[in-house]
């Protein structure tokens, strides 16, 4: 059965979507990704959409879900590589994706994840040793 590969890069997971997405495939990805975040104890998830030609309301909702689920399991999520035409269409469609972090490309996404991880570990220290 078709499956979208999830790669491990250090403490992060990288999902690079290279096929034409359909609903069943996205649902399966959501299951796989949550399982992998737990199994690999990932600190961050990077979803690369640079070859994705459309994001409709279902795919958009699933992106939001995956970000929320990862967050719940202790990993930050960043969506990268959204194409200009796709970004315009998402906005016109009325999707907000407000709870999802975004970056221009994989490089910048990894940098953003590192900042987010640093910030949250600083928060944890602050809570552990209150002044």
């Amino acid at each position: 059965m078709e499956q979208i590969p999830i790669l491990q890069v250090g403490e992060f997971l990288l999902v690079s979507i290279q096929v034409d997405l359909h609903d069943r495939l996205v649902l399966r990805l959501q299951d796989d990704l949550t399982a992998q975040v737990v199994k690999k104890q990932a600190k961050g998830v990077l979803i690369d959409l640079s070859t994705v030609e459309i994001v409709d309301s279902f795919i958009g909702r699933m992106l939001g879900n995956m970000a929320a689920l990862s967050q719940m399991l202790g990993a930050h999520a960043v969506v990268v590589g959204i194409r200009p035409a796709v970004a315009i269409t998402i906005v016109e469609l009325g999707l907000s994706l407000n709870n999802v972090h975004t970056a221009l490309n994989v490089d910048k996404g990894i940098a953003l994840l590192q900042t987010l991880v640093k910030q949250s570990s600083a928060e944890v220290r602050d809570e552990a040793y209150p002044l």
């Binding site: 959204i82 970004a87 994706l97 970056a103």
Partner: peptide, 9 residues
């Protein structure tokens, strides 16, 4: 603004 944000800006 929303479209730019989707591109990480």
């Amino acid at each position: 603004v929303a479209a730019a944000r989707l591109m990480g800006a």
